[in-house]
Design a protein around this nucleic acid. Structure first.
Lengths: 340, 340
DNA sequence: ACCCTGAGGCAAAACGATTTGATGGGGTGG
DNA sequence: CCACCCCATCAAATCGTTTTGCCTCAGGGT
């Protein structure tokens, strides 16, 4: 009894050949009714469909991938999925490509170059159809090695030199300029900035500087300090700032987590925000509206970035676009809330 | 600097056959030096390695997967990767299985049954080596259909009836009891609870009730309200609670986001926490230490849950364990902070 | 001398699909 | 009635590995 029916064949999956035999046709025909790549007679199609249903046939995707050289899988390599920014970005990507039947393979690099390389290689070996690279600002040639000319890559937040990979970059500079101008227009005089670590977040620093210059605010070196993107780093940087002789009356932070650390200091010192000191962040993570008062910040469009990355990828995968690397820049609007 | 051989094959990848030809051996031998499944002479091995290096050979993983019926890929299906709890869980899983060379394929279901099924099917079709299911509390038989007896499944937060799939469940009940007892021991009298939606989070409610009974606190029905896990839901539930004639002096919330919503209400009403009203949450998300005062809560060990899920999976995949479904329960310790 | 064993290697058969070239059959127009 | 073309179908090759069975050659024990 076990040979004849579907449910009774316990562990080996049904193959296309079995369906074909059952329907009294060749495997080719079954394949064609499934893919629709060639016409199949209505009667035959019916018989085949019937057989498929009866046997509970499910195509073996691995075999299909081998033959077609498409995996319908996209790798996204990020520093840490635990970081809300990257989680949202990943979700944006997933939503964008899901409809087309693509899965997303997530790689956490912790920002380590070694792991970035390893995962990139791994993704290539696995035959993913595309990779979106959002880890590290230095999407160097070295990371990718000799890029397989076939599989598209899109870098988020950085522009790779390679002509065949697209880039989506949030407009950090304009956003930061807006933040700076806003603070100046509010009448703050001694405006400081907590930057990212050396070699990181250069655009945010540049935008801020440009705004200060336009507003005729001097920014002495001691008012430009650095943090390591974390809450703790922001806390320490703010501490240093508040110990200055000419205490800043406003602080622009290169990301929200550091801004939250800065607010910790303000609370600790009994300073009221924004009266005694204003704070502006960058990213607009969820936590920005959890802290009190709600954080004024610049929105970093993570979800949209992931989405457009997916679109760029798919336009190349489908062959709809072939050509030199495109760059789409996303606006980063200022969001006024309670801290400035 | 580029190797002349590797670069000369412009777009088609090097196959094992080419390596074999170059080394003057058969593909079989190359495979054996790679896998070590059979002994290979030292000299031959040297020649082969050399050829591999020169040609820049990388094995085609898809082909390997087809033959070996292993994909070294694990699917994790969660409601939403954007939710910090699941992000952390996913990271725990990824870290656990990465060392063994397994990738993680993330599926967002938004809690919709339909998507849960679809992704589960999809994962199976793709030939993943295992799936951890952390979406929905109702990991029903229906979701899985007739489970392929081959590929292991582990459910997080729920115990599936199926005997062959393992479960890791955070001990919600004990944790909630601890929270309840704690509030009682602090002398709060009119203790309320904001539960999850109907049919969800039953264990948390049960633990709380048990604690109330042990502490001889009556909990009238109007003090047991429901939210939908969100901040907004918590806000509204808390509003209702605070409008009661006998206003509660302590509120246990079934998760942190609702607790944060509850705190919003307290602030809005000018009530001081914990003097006027105490609040305790559940989960210990990052935001718990961002809100002021810091949230007293019960820790939900997301990272560990993901990790042990990975371990359970791997022990089955390797054949180290075969047998009926195991259940490991993880403790949820109370973390005292500022709101109670 | 003979058997047995283990090491080292190869040819060929899977794995389960897709794709290509060929083939037969039926209609239509000349 | 023939030429022609299109539709439906099939057999066989292909994708790039792994794995199985077999062969040969050496060496050691009896």
């Amino acid at each position: 009894m076990s040979t004849s029916e579907a449910a009774s064949s316990p562990h080996s999956r049904v193959t296309i050949a079995q369906v074909a035999r059952r329907a009294g046709v060749s495997p080719t025909t079954v394949s064609h009714v499934l893919s629709g790549k060639r016409a199949v007679g209505a009667a035959t199609r019916g018989t085949v469909m019937e057989a498929i249903r009866e046997l509970g046939y499910r195509p073996n995707i691995v075999a299909r991938n081998l033959r077609t050289r498409r995996s319908h899988m996209i790798a996204v390599v990020v520093p840490d999925i635990t970081n809300p920014f990257y989680a949202v970005l990943t979700r944006g990507l997933a939503d964008a490509v899901d409809a087309a039947g693509h899965g997303t393979y997530v790689c956490n690099t912790d920002g380590q170059h070694e792991r970035e390389r390893k995962f990139f290689q791994d993704a290539m070996d696995r035959g993913v159809d595309g990779v979106v690279f959002a880890s590290g600002e230095t999407a160097s040639q070295i990371t990718f090695g000799e890029v397989d000319q076939q599989t598209p890559i899109v870098c988020i937040g950085d522009q790779l030199d390679h002509p065949l990979c697209d880039a989506v970059i949030p407009d950090d500079e304009t956003g930061s300029r807006a933040a700076g101008s806003f603070l100046a227009s509010r009448g703050y005089e001694r405006i400081a900035m907590i930057q990212g670590p050396p070699h990181y977040g250069a655009a945010r620093t540049a935008g801020f500087r440009s705004a200060m210059q336009a507003a005729k605010r001097k920014v002495p070196a001691e008012r430009m300090v650095r943090g390591d993107w974390t809450r703790k780093g922001g806390y320490e940087a703010m501490k240093a700032l508040m110990a200055l002789d000419a205490r800043p009356d406003a602080v622009f932070c290169a990301n929200d987590m550091m801004a939250i650390g800065a607010l910790d200091v303000a609370h600790e010192l009994g300073l009221s925000v924004p009266e005694d000191v204003a704070v502006v962040g960058f990213d607009d993570v969820d936590a920005a509206t959890i802290v009190t008062p709600h954080l004024t910040t610049v929105r970093n469009p993570a979800y949209e970035a992931g989405g457009t990355a997916g679109d760029l990828l798919m336009s190349r995968m489908s062959g709809r676009y072939t050509g030199t690397g495109r760059t789409v820049v996303l606006p980063c609007p200022l969001i006024e809330r309670g801290t400035a």
